[in-house]
Amino acid sequence: MFMLAPPLLALPFPSIDPVLIELGPFAIRWYALAYIGGLLFGWWMAKRLCARPALWGGRSPIQPEEFDDAVVWIAVGVILGGRIGYVLFYNLPFYTANPWEALTLWHGGMAFHGGFLGSILAMYLFCRRRGLPFVSMLDIAASVVPVGLFLGRLANFVNGELWGRPTDVAWAFVFPHGGPEPRHPSQLYEAGLEGLAIFIILQIVIRAGALARPGTVAGMFVFLYGCARIFVEFFREPDAQLGYLLGGWLTMGMLLSLPMLAVGSWLVWRARRRPALAASAT
């Protein structure tokens, strides 16, 4: 009996230049366009949700023009939080020795969990200043975040960064800076799970009336993202400067995602125990 050897071939990595347009010292990168595209599409879609009373069981507690003003706060929270989170969680010794490098956003280095916390803080401050319901604002933002995650992970793939662990699966890629081994395209796994799958699930529950119970959509997003990220971390190569934690299997991405399971579950449980918006208004 003959045994089949593992496949020796890998898919060719697409030669897409990470820089779309370069004008002298200025460069427009796909990664930056992913952030911009995610914010613009999320802004447009969130306003549509605010303008559809039927999804809320009555008048939306946040009007489209109010969300217009919130977008700037959210964008600042995402960028500052994402950068600070990367500095603190993923490469603190380097930035402690080179503090000015923390300002060089064009060199890369953003952390989702930091951007997530930064955007929540920004929305809280905005809602407190305007007297708007914070939890409903979270629901609106959570419903569109997967779009940005989808575009961002595709940009990670184009950049040839955040690649997966070595594998012999038929759809493996040899990444330009990932060594000679074929690797999981973990960026595409994340785009499919954190982006596309969660987006579809949230749109289904929104149309089933989830926005009428504040906290349901936000809780589902937080819980589902935590599950998706922990799952993909089993295929994603840990950051070189961190490696594996606690016995050689836990990663920083897993560690930061574990609390999301508890927080997301609590938000959904809390939302289900409270009356719906229409019932509250009567």
Rank of each mutant, 00 (worst) to 15 (best):
A111G: 09
C127Q: 06
D68W: 02
A70N: 00
L88G: 02
E22P: 01
V158N: 09
M110F: 15
M260G: 03
Y31M: 14
L149V: 07
H113Y: 09
Y35G: 05
I36H: 01
G24S: 14
F41L: 13
L188M: 12
E22L: 04
G148A: 07
G58E: 00
V144Y: 00
A27Y: 07
A141M: 14
M3V: 11
T167M: 02
P14T: 11
I120F: 07
A27V: 14
Y90Q: 00
V78W: 03
A212H: 02
R129N: 14
Y31H: 10
T96G: 14
I200H: 08
R272W: 15
R52G: 03
E101V: 13
N98K: 06
I28D: 11
S136T: 10
G248I: 08
L196P: 01
L211I: 12
P214R: 04
C227G: 02
L151F: 13
P133F: 07
R274H: 12
A197H: 04
A97T: 08
A228P: 03
L33H: 09
S257L: 05
H113F: 10
K47F: 05
S143Y: 06
L261F: 06
A271T: 04
G37H: 01
A54C: 04
G118N: 13
P180D: 07
F126R: 03
H184W: 15
V205C: 12
W44K: 01
W249C: 02
L9P: 02
G118I: 11
F94S: 01
R183W: 09
A70V: 09
P6L: 12
D239V: 09
L92V: 00
R59C: 00
A5K: 15
I140W: 00
V169W: 08
D17P: 09
R59F: 08
P238S: 11
C50E: 02
W163A: 06
A210H: 07
L20Y: 10
P275H: 10
M3A: 12
L267P: 01
E237C: 11
D69T: 11
G215A: 07
R270G: 05
D239W: 08
A170F: 13
C127R: 02
L258F: 09
G160E: 13
E190W: 06
R229W: 06
W106D: 12
M220T: 11
Q241H: 04
F157L: 10
F221M: 12
L8Y: 02
I21F: 14
P238R: 06
L149P: 01
G24N: 13
